[in-house]
Simulated assay, not measured.
Amino acid sequence: SLDGSKWNPNWFGCATCTTPPVNGAESAAYAPSQISESGGSLHLKAEQKPATVNGKNYAYTSGLVNTNGKAQFTYGAFEARIYLPASGSQVANWPAFWTDGQNWPADGELDVMEGLSGQACYHFHSPSGGPGGCAPGNYSGWHTFGADWQPGSVTYYYDGVKVGQITSGITSAPMYLILNNAVYASGPTVTPADMQVDYVRVWQH
């Protein structure tokens, strides 16, 4: 099962609560019931399961885990091996592996990988903007996504190959890790969709 000493099972709520999504563009609430472990992998499952949170209705329910309050890092390398749900040859929904600071956007947001319009993309958000890009190719299924965060730069690696580097607006505040299988109304939506995580690794500089 999920290691509660390292991970929280939703987005800023009690350990058993269904919580609102991270972003207003998302169509799924987050619930601990959508998180499981089997076959050596973490499963974050998006389903067409309606939920009402704080008086707002969501058509889908999905899974999110984060290390807020349990582990955060300034600089270092982050890597995860992830299975991304597919829509044909594209990445389905809005799955993501990212880090965030306590005070967004001042502290920064490092998107190691997020599925946007079927592609695997990377960004760094701060008060200076949100530069980034998308890697060519089909990244549905199993792939490894990594980022090396150093003072003034973040270099992104997909399957061990450098796909981009950002050198503007890089912040230095501590960040915590997040993995989520978001549903995005404007992208290719597939449910049920199982985002799987084989491992997450962090190396400190």
Rank of each mutant, 00 (worst) to 15 (best):
A51K: 05
A51W: 05
V53W: 11
N54W: 06
N54A: 11
G55S: 03
G55D: 03
G55P: 07
K56T: 15
K56N: 13
K56D: 07
K56G: 04
K56F: 08
N57E: 08
N57K: 14
N57H: 13
Y58V: 06
Y60G: 10
Y60E: 08
Y60V: 09
Y60I: 07
T61I: 03
S62G: 04
S62V: 03
G63K: 08
G63S: 06
L64S: 06
V65Y: 05
N66D: 15
T67V: 01
T67L: 01
N68G: 04
G69R: 05
K70S: 02
A71E: 04
A71S: 13
A71H: 11
A71V: 03
F73K: 12
T74L: 04
T74F: 08
T74Y: 09
Y75P: 00
G76V: 07
G76R: 10
G76P: 11
A77H: 10
A77W: 00
A77C: 00
F78G: 02
F78I: 04
F78N: 03
E79Y: 06
R81N: 04
R81I: 01
R81W: 00
I82Y: 11
Y83L: 00
Y83V: 00
L84W: 07
L84F: 14
P85W: 07
P85S: 07
A86H: 09
A86Y: 02
A86M: 03
S87L: 01
S89A: 11
Q90V: 00
V91R: 09
V91F: 06
A92D: 10
A92K: 09
N93C: 11
W94N: 13
A96L: 10
A96R: 13
F97I: 00
F97Y: 14
W98T: 03
W98Q: 05
T99S: 14
T99R: 04
D100R: 14
G101T: 08
G101N: 10
Q102C: 02
N103F: 08
N103A: 10
W104F: 15
P105E: 07
P105S: 10
P105T: 13
A106W: 09
D107W: 05
G108R: 13
G108H: 12
G108Q: 12
G108E: 13
G108T: 13
E109V: 06
E109R: 10
E109C: 03
E109Y: 06
E109G: 03
L110Y: 06
L110Q: 13
L110N: 15
E114V: 09
E114Q: 15
L116N: 11
L116P: 00
S117F: 12
G118I: 01
Q119A: 15
A120S: 14
A120Q: 09
A120P: 14
A120F: 10
C121D: 09
Y122L: 00
H123N: 12
H123K: 10
F124P: 02
H125S: 01
H125W: 04
H125P: 01
S126H: 11
S126R: 12
S126D: 09
S126L: 06
P127G: 08
S128D: 13
S128N: 12
G130I: 02
P131K: 02
P131H: 01
